[in-house]
């Protein structure tokens, strides 16, 4: 658990509104407080928070609420990255440019470590951010391509739970699939 003393720095850092957003959403520059599972409070632009379907539905129930919304499944670290992504997305909403959007998305995942992806996917899923989930799932799919089974297991931290009999059958399947392709 991070101490509450850290919170102000983090909050100001991630909610520093970019100028474009500030002008575009000047009339609705309402801030929403979101509380992560590790008790950090994020102050987020309403337009960004509305990207999270889960939060949006929360406010549909109570439109005039000014309360802090608890996000019991969301730790702070991946959440700040998720906010970063949604801020970028909003720019493209006002000014749709598919190629730029793709470029920005691929840059976003490129600099993320495997661990970042690991942590962000459940968050994106919980907050129901479809665009982000798409980008993340594709990134994972890309990262496990051309990799060995062992790599995929260690990437995901999955234990091999096959019995030795099943293993034997898998080895044959593997031998067939990975048999060297005749060159000539």
């Amino acid at each position: 658990m991070s101490s509450s003393a850290e919170n102000p720095t983090l909050t100001t850092e991630i909610t520093k509104p970019s100028t474009e957003i500030a002008t575009e959403t000047a009339q609705s520059a309402k801030k929403i407080n979101l509380k992560t599972s590790d008790d950090q409070i994020f102050e987020v632009e309403e337009s960004v928070a509305m990207e999270f379907a889960t939060v949006k539905s929360f406010f549909e129930d109570a439109p005039s609420s000014t309360d802090t919304v608890p996000l019991p499944n969301v730790p702070a670290k991946p959440f700040s990255q998720v906010i970063e992504f949604c801020k970028e997305q909003i720019k493209f909403k006002a000014n749709p440019d598919e190629t730029e959007k793709k470029k920005s998305n691929s840059e976003f995942v490129k600099e993320k470590t495997n661990e970042d992806l690991v942590e962000m996917i459940p968050v994106a899923n919980y907050l129901e951010i479809k665009d982000l989930l798409d980008v993340l799932n594709q990134a994972v799919a890309d990262r496990i391509q051309n990799r060995s089974v062992e790599y995929v297991r260690s990437f995901f931290g999955i234990d091999n739970d096959f019995t030795s009999e099943e293993e034997a059958l898998l080895r044959e399947e593997h031998a067939w699939a990975f048999e060297d392709v005749d060159e000539d």
Binding site: I144, V152, R153, D161, E173, H174, F178
Partner: peptide, 12 residues
Amino acid sequence: GRRDVVACASVC
């Protein structure tokens, strides 16, 4: 490339 699919089926 399709061997990746076979690899996915061997993870767990």
